[in-house]
Amino acid sequence: MRRQLPVWLGFIAGMLVIIARYFAFPGFTQVQKTLDNWAMYSGAAAFLMGMINLTIVHKTNIQRRRENWGASLVLLIAMFGYFIYGLFTGPDDKLFVSIFNATISPLGSAMFSLLAFYMLSAAYRAFRMKTLEATILLAAGLIGILGNAPIGAAISPWIPSARNWMTEILNTAAMRAVTIGTALGAYAAMVRILLGIERSYLGGRGD
């Protein structure tokens, strides 16, 4: 029963949404809207669950003086401090916005920009013409790199044209196949979940 009930609930909810989407019967449409709302409320509740979970994990770290427990303390102070401050002041408060702009924004940008340094190092050390395939890949990569910035056109108008041709013709052919394949795979996964063949979402082993 513990396994059968969620599978049946999933099947009924899934079928209702599918029928409402493809056939637009008035009654089903209303049920779909209600289910949509429930899913949105569940999503909102998940944020609270996440916060509770984080608090439990890091509280335990601090209580047991685990390695880097100081970082856990900083996390909890930052999380609850920002949360409580935001609750009282609202999202347009100057200090609330400043904290976000002065911490989250630059830290996020810095983490992402590090990629450029690693990519340069990796491209220099690993991008080698070892085989014919690697040589073709290298040539395509170099045309892509130069063609995606004004320097490509400054060197030769042929470079951006070649880059556009690769992106719009060669890439598109492959990407369409990948996209359609992924969609069919997702469809198959949906059918497996609806029919209760795939049950890993219930938290078990999927058997």
Partner: peptide
């Protein structure tokens, strides 16, 4: 971006 991409190009060529 142009300068960075040119540097990538130069180092990939030199590496090869």
């Amino acid at each position: 971006q142009s300068a960075a991409h040119a540097l990538f190009f130069v180092f990939v060529v030199l590496g090869n």
